[in-house]
Structure formats: C-alpha cells, structure tokens
C-alpha cells in the first residue's frame, strides 16, 4: 500500500490535482482509495466516488486540528484501503495551522500551492512546505512568467530539496511527473512516524482558556516584547 498525503491552503487546487492523478492511475489499472480530512465541511468524497467509482471517505476533525486528526486516523485508513483492495491511499488534508506538517516518513508528501497567491506565500507556510517531497504549483495559467519564476525561487529558498512541479490543474497539464513520483514511492511501513516535530503541546488556549493576555496563561507563553518564555512550575 502506497501512501500519498496532499496538503495545502484552502482552494489551491488539491482536489483538481488529485482528480487528474486518479484519472491517470485508472488508465494503468491502479486502484486508489481516497480520504479527505477537513474541519467542518467537505464533499470531495462524494465527488470522487461518483466520478471514478473508487472507495472514498471523509472525516471532520472538528475540535481537533486536522493535522492531529490525520495522525489519529491514518492507521485505520490504511487498513480500510487495504480491505477495499486498493494499492494506493490518497489523503487530502487542509493542513491549517502552519506549525505542523501532515507528512509521514514512508509516504509521499505533496503540498499544493497556487501561483496566484502572491510571491511571499512560500515564506509563510512553514513545515507544510519545507517537509514536503514535492511542491505542486497550480494556476500557472493566470500569472506572468516573471511571477512564476519569483514564486519558484522563493520555494527553492525555503525548501531547497523539495521538487517543484508546475501544473495547470484545470487542463491536467504537468500531472504525469506527479504520477511517476507516486509509482516510485515505496509501500508504507507498519510503524510510521510523523515527519517533523509537533509544536509545543502546552498551549492553554488550545485547552480552552479564553482570557486575553499572557498573564492569564501558563506553560510556554509569550508577550509582545519577549520571545517565548516559561511561566509556572
């Protein structure tokens, strides 16, 4: 079972890219299963089930961060895909918080970014980009050659080892190299680890304290003038 995790900000073209990937996989008789992880709304599962007749599921992370939800359910999802007789599991996740990355050692990590998002975006998405294997740049049909080149060089600056692939996901242009990378990915392992380190796990806001100002919080806190510091026992 090969595992592909596809992350990226909202509406960058993840679904459009995966649609063309599924099409190309079906052309070579590869069976893929699809899992969508989102916070509160998604319809890709119904879309792909209808369009391609493949096994699909979705899960809402709700109170959990989607990247954390991903860690929780991925083991089950791989077993589900295996039971469905598939050889590839494609996961689309929203990857919202920009401090974690959803990628797993032993799987292919793919971030989808849109060339239309402005040339500083690659500098802002953190480990979701730097820990990916491939950065897919969509919507290249909308921007000037100059901005395409600046966008690419910004990605290379943040993530020198990440392979960059430009695509027009409306027409499925540039999808073949992505499918090749999936074919070259080894099967997922039994005891997989999240790639990269999760952020500090002592955030009092995450556990529900709503008071404004660091004085009301403890653990690793931060004021406007200081970097992170520790408050409490």
């Amino acid at each position: 079972m090969k595992l592909v995790i596809c992350a990226g900000p909202a509406t960058t073209g993840k679904t459009s890219v995966l649609r063309h990937i599924i099409q190309k996989l079906q052309q070579v008789q590869e069976k893929a299963a699809f899992l969508k992880i989102d916070v509160q709304y998604a319809e890709e599962d119904e879309l792909f089930a209808r369009e391609f007749g493949i096994p699909t599921r979705k899960i809402y992370s709700g109170e959990l961060c989607p990247d954390h939800c991903n860690v929780m359910v991925l083991g089950d999802a791989l077993q589900w895909a295996r039971r469905e007789g598939c050889s590839i599991l494609l996961v689309e996740t929203a990857g919202l918080c920009l401090r974690c990355s959803p990628y797993v050692d032993g799987g292919l990590g793919m971030i989808v970014l849109e060339a239309t998002s402005g040339t500083n975006l690659p500098l802002k998405v953190g480990p979701m980009l730097s820990l990916a294997d491939i950065a897919v740049v969509t919507k290249i049909d909308r921007v000037s050659q100059a901005e395409r080149e600046v966008f690419r060089s910004r990605i290379q600056y943040v993530a020198p080892n990440v392979r960059i692939r430009e695509v027009n996901a409306l027409y499925g242009i540039g999808i073949d190299p992505l499918v090749d990378s999936i074919h070259q990915t080894p099967d997922a392992w039994d005891n997989m680890l999240l790639r990269g380190n999760p952020p500090v796990g002592t955030c009092t806001i995450c556990v529900g304290k709503k008071e404004i100002g660091w004085q009301a919080h403890f653990g690793v806190v931060r004021s406007l003038e200081n970097q992170n510091f520790y408050r409490g026992e």
């Binding site: 049909d141 909308r142 000037s144 050659q145 901005e147 395409r148 080149e149 060089s153």
Partner: peptide
C-alpha cells in the same frame, strides 16, 4: 530549473498580481 526553461508564455489571462 526555472532559469533554464526556454519558453516564456504571455496568455490572454496573464497579469501581474504583485
């Protein structure tokens, strides 16, 4: 490698966003 791409394309929709 963006610097080695021999083609520049200016489409009907191409604009500067910056």
């Amino acid at each position: 490698n963006p610097a080695s791409n021999p083609i520049a394309l200016i489409t009907q929709h191409t604009t500067f966003l910056s």
